[in-house]
Amino acid sequence: MNPPLPHLELSQVSIEFPTPKGPFRALRDINLKIAKGEFLSLIGHSGCGKSTVLNIIAGLYQPTEGVVLLNDREVREPGPERAVVFQNHSLLPWLNVYENVKLAVDQVFRDKPSSWKKEWIEHNLKLVHMDHARHKYPAEISGGMKQRVGIARALAMQPEVLLMDEPFGALDALTRAHLQDSLMEIQETLKNTVIMITHDVDEAVLLSDRIVMMTNGPEATIGEILPINLPRPRNRLTLSKDPTYAALRAHVLDFLYAKQARRIEEGVLA
């Protein structure tokens, strides 16, 4: 059987940042092939360059070496086909929920009639269960709700790849579980390619098709890729008693806390 042509490919990606003490090599030799519709998690300790990988795929950073290919075309700049859900939602505080999504829709679907756009915005707000709060301003809603709107805004761009930078990191455990379920549901219907950064081992195992584990920086790279062959739809309650789940979880924990244990005395690169 021929492997399918990769949808998104990172090939020999390295990046250096200029610092007063000379160039700082944050990432080296990142090679990754991602299939269409795949859900990929990036996990690693703080400062290992997970966000940098995501920003390179988003086009917000340019790799010093190597190339990112989406459908065989080089990624050179940011674009709505690689929508980003930012860590701290980054909604515009002067626009209400509806208008925040509208900003994206107006930009991506310029030629569509406004009635279509209105329906599309409402559809996406419904997907994340936020249609009831469309007139609220970001300051008036909770962190979890803001993150939902951030996801709706990204989904409304109808991206080929959805990039999520620790989308649930700042949320409490209950809200996080709720949003993870929503995300799985959405992923089930839309079949987007998703790349998500996370700190949370359970989240990674629960949501992903593969987990990409990164070594510590500087010169961070991919340490190991773990396929998660759990059947979908997944349920967190049944999985918690599943031995495969437990084994996978243990594997990731082992990588993070035995193989890549942070040596505190080396200092933490934030």
């Binding site: 988003a58 917000l60 940011p78 709505p80 690689r82 930012f86 930009q107 761009m157």
Partner: peptide
């Protein structure tokens, strides 16, 4: 903020739209 700028970049807002929709209201 950098985040607002990144939102604008991901959406590929033209410089004028960026000024009108992001910079001015902020």
């Amino acid at each position: 903020t950098r985040d607002m700028q990144n939102v604008s970049r991901v959406l590929r807002l033209s410089p004028l739209t960026h000024l009108r929709k992001i910079v001015l209201p902020c």
